[in-house]
């Protein structure tokens, strides 16, 4: 029983971390059809912003998330205006942006490497202790990650469904031309969605790095996992990807417990192949149907 509980709690911990890394990727695909492989860059930027804020400036840990959010917002703005806005109206945007964002991810990683050095450091945004359940401990860190993921999800869904900006974002994602014909400034809307996603990614970066460690390439693994989760859930379905993050966290930990540590990630990759064969649009994805 204890072992089962331990697997569940470890799975939830890993799942919460995966969920944190997945939200922004899913949001940007959902809203703009943009597969942002520089997602990990924003995760790293958020993680380092919080680290500098607490360790270098000796600020209270309370500031970690707001500072990371601000860093994400600003870098999202720069990212949009330096790169995305010049590409999104061109042909083959969806493919070209994937390649371009891989380049951005490498640039940011190397930039951080030059500034901060290659050492892995401990993310100071840590909550000690945990809640004893049965014979095992549910770490407060897991609960906090869980809580922040839920809050981010609620905020994003609120923005998308209840605000004017959200209405514009959805309009641009569903019918770019028609949105223009209604007076929506497409470029501005795209920029706002980009900044929103970058902010979310940076905040989640603090949570992700708190569970692992902080090093320049930290975003790569998170983005890879997020990609797997998004594809299995169905790209662009934000709610489904959050659920899938937890499901895969549990799955990975279970496999690791039963078959051994090293089989966790290969098992996930096997799963993705199976899902893509059986349901190419993902488990909760919509088949693209053109109605005439």
């Amino acid at each position: 029983m204890d072992i089962f509980l331990q697997i569940v709690i470890s799975g939830l911990t890993v799942g919460a971390m995966y969920a944190a890394g997945t939200i922004a990727l899913s949001l940007l695909w959902n809203s703009m059809g943009m597969l942002n492989l520089a997602n990990g860059a924003f995760i790293a930027i958020g993680g380092y912003a919080a680290y500098w804020c607490i360790t270098v400036l000796h600020a209270s840990w309370i500031f970690a998330l707001p500072v990371a959010a601000a860093a994400g917002l600003i870098s999202g703005y720069i990212f949009y205006h330096l790169l995305v806005r010049w590409m999104y109206q061109r042909a083959d945007f969806q493919i070209n942006i994937i390649i371009a964002t891989v380049a951005v991810a490498a640039l940011v990683e190397n930039g951080i490497l030059n500034i901060a050095g290659p050492e892995a450091v401990r993310q100071p945004f840590q909550i000690a202790g945990g809640l004893p359940i049965g014979g095992v401990i549910l770490p407060y860190q897991t609960l906090a990650t869980f809580a922040v993921v839920i809050i981010l999800l609620i905020v994003i869904l609120w923005i998308l469904t209840r605000t004017r900006l959200g209405l514009k974002i959805r309009a641009v994602s569903q019918q770019k031309e028609a949105a223009q014909l209604m007076g929506v400034h497409v470029s501005q809307t795209f920029g706002a969605a980009m900044m929103l996603a970058a902010t979310v990614a940076a905040v989640s970066g603090v949570l992700v790095t708190a569970n692992t460690q902080l090093f320049p390439g930290v975003g790569f693994d998170a983005t890879l996992k997020a990609l797997v989760i998004c594809i299995i859930a169905g790209l662009g379905n934000i709610r489904a990807s959050i659920l899938m993050a937890f499901a895969l966290g549990l799955f990975e930990i279970s496999v690791q417990y039963i078959f051994g540590q090293r089989y966790g990630f290969p098992a996930m990759l096997t799963l993705i192949i199976l899902v893509l064969i059986v349901r190419p649009a993902g488990l909760f994805g919509k088949e693209t149907v053109t109605r005439l």
Binding site: R170, A171, Q174, Q175, E177, L181
Partner: peptide, 8 residues
Amino acid sequence: GDMVFADM
């Protein structure tokens, strides 16, 4: 062809 926002 209308171009309505199909999911709204």
